[in-house]
């Protein structure tokens, strides 16, 4: 069963307090971020229903939102998600080659997760790091000026983290 810890519930309350009375629905996106982070990196129907109950809104209101925004995962993902940008400015600086290299290194296609559940590769659209291309998002942070060597280092770093 999904349930926030007492500590996290305080965080939830402070999120709701940012809005005027009765406008608690505004806390939906911040809450979904928190839920995704706390409950395994993705949003199950159970998690979404739980969030709906916290905000006293209907489950459909959560589904509508969760499926609209690209940062919410509606399927389980690997422990480390490589989100590589492929839009214009990154493409000009060789993002295609970086994506190909990651595919080859991890032996997975775009949108797939490695058999050991460690890595998921996603291609994403512009993340606002065009001057530091090619780049990817890994967790809460950006990894910029990617090269093949850097990709190797990142994979190594992730493997060592567990």
């Amino acid at each position: 069963m999904v349930k926030f810890t007492e500590d996290k519930m305080k965080e939830v309350q402070s999120m709701i307090d940012r809005y005027p009375e009765g406008k608690q629905k505004s806390a939906l996106i911040p809450l979904l971020h928190l839920a995704q982070q706390e409950f395994g990196g993705w949003l199950s129907a159970e998690t979404m229903d739980y969030v709906a109950s916290l905000l006293s809104i209907e489950p459909i209101e959560v589904y509508e939102v969760a499926t609209f925004y690209s940062m919410f995962n509606l399927q389980p993902v690997g422990k480390h998600v490589f989100e590589v940008c492929q839009t214009g400015p990154c493409m000009l600086n060789g993002s295609d080659q970086i994506i190909d290299y990651i595919k080859q290194r991890l032996n997975i296609g775009v949108g797939e997760t490695t058999a050991d559940g460690m890595f998921t590769l996603k291609t994403v659209e512009c993340l606002g790091a065009c001057g530091y291309a090619p780049m990817m998002q890994l967790g809460m942070h950006y990894r910029e000026h990617l090269t093949k060597t850097k990709v190797d280092e990142i994979i190594e770093e992730c493997r060592n983290k567990q």
Binding site: P30, E64, V65, F68, M71
Partner: peptide, 27 residues
Amino acid sequence: IYVQRGAGAYICGEETALIESLEGKRG
């Protein structure tokens, strides 16, 4: 002043989509 995080949608840069999103809706 409060900081509100979006969740990955270019369209929320359009001001009325941004407002919708800030209200906890689809952009």
